[in-house]
Amino acid sequence: MTQIILDKQIAQDDWVLVADDATLSGNKEVINFSRWNSAVDTDKADLIAKRDAGTLGIQLNAGDTADLLAQDSQGFALINVDFPKFADGRGYSAARLLRERYGFSGQLRAVGDVLFDQLFFMMRCGFNAMAMREDQDLELAVKGFETFSAPYQGDVNDARPLFRRRG
């Protein structure tokens, strides 16, 4: 099992991303959004059942905006947001929208090209889990959360901008 960061601690990952044509086992598995989106009838009913049982996660890939999932997000135990490149910042908006607008309260995980210097922004946008790129040092990473103490903007953790907090 690989290690991830979960709630600012190093943790074991017990989820697996499965191929679009794989049969689901009923264990903790993550499917791509496109599979969810194109499923119909009994297939969809099966996915919904697994989601509601807490054994199905979903992954938003590049170009999958949060509004496509919207309130459907709520039942999932896990949503992955993929960062195809660290310079691709779409996932930050997706995370905020899932948390702030669509009421998602499960595990929100950044996956893909996830590097040390993005973690603080990710946390502020509502990610509570990060599967970092393989070469990253997780011990160092968990220390990096304390970089900035009082940001200017409101965020998912505290909606009040500094001007509403300034003493």
Binding site: F86, G89, Y92, S93, F120, F121, R124, F148, Q153
Partner: peptide
């Protein structure tokens, strides 16, 4: 102030 380290708009 709003734009400095805006968490959503750094990339």
């Amino acid at each position: 102030q709003w734009s400095t380290f805006h968490p959503e708009f750094a990339f």
